[in-house]
Design a protein around this nucleic acid. Structure first.
Lengths: 132, 132
DNA sequence: CGGGATCCGTTAAGATACTG
DNA sequence: CAGTATCTTAACGGATCCCG
């Protein structure tokens, strides 16, 4: 397209890389998507939809998660703006995690997915059993 | 199990493990969820929502995926009953992947998630930049 | 209580080559 | 064309110890 356009039409505008589509290798949304759909991140966000949680509460709620992975997931979620972390410097320390506005838009979609897959489990087991 | 249960009230019915909730460590739905939200699986399912694809077509559509990972993801998706694989034993071979009925219920939820995250990318970048 | 730092085994992922 | 087999490398993930 427009091979010889000398005018102000930058073909490779860096801003366009933002919203592009996930099917493109370089699209940054792919990374963000992975953060959100990560094994523990998904469960943490879903749990936070119910109510704010403290670290230990989340740890108990998301059964099986290690402190390291929960901490790591929460940091990534905070960095991408889905979760807010509030620290109260008391003794003992009190840290609370809650969804941001963006997170409150995201979480229902994840919950919907979770619920659907839960409901589809009989079919999934049937499919697995079907093939000899 | 049910050693001395005379009545028809089995407390620990093994069938109940199925639909339980993902927050429980032993819940099988957690595994199924991971299969579906996997990096490549998610993109493959989303691509198949548009139309059936051949292996090579999918490979080109899902930019950056290796043959190995695509093959692996598709096998898992087929095993769990989201995707159907149809082989035509011609020369050269012709294999087509399409969503099952269950897959056609699943895919829109994933696509919705993808679209939402794509749209939220400006906010995500802003959140990342916000913290020094 | 809420993590950060470190160590280390397990698994996932990518590149490459080969087959029906 | 549509994969499988093999190998190497990178990332994940858990356990442990420690500090504010």
């Amino acid at each position: 397209m427009g091979v010889d356009t000398p005018g102000p039409a930058p073909a490779a505008d860096p801003v366009e890389d933002f919203a592009a589509d996930v099917f493109s290798r370089r699209c940054t949304s792919r990374e963000a998507l992975e953060h959100v759909t990560g094994k523990w991140a998904l469960l943490a966000v879903t749990a936070l939809l119910e109510s704010p949680h403290r670290f230990g509460e989340l740890r108990r709620r998301v059964d099986g998660v290690s402190e390291k992975m929960l901490s790591q997931s929460l940091q990534t979620l905070e960095r991408d703006g889905w979760v807010h972390r509030e620290v109260r410097s008391t003794i003992p320390p009190h840290v609370e995690y809650r969804l941001t506005d963006a997170g409150r838009e995201l979480a229902p979609r994840l919950l919907d997915l979770v619920r659907f897959v839960e409901g589809a489990m009989p079919a999934v087991h049937a499919a697995r059993a079907a093939r000899s």
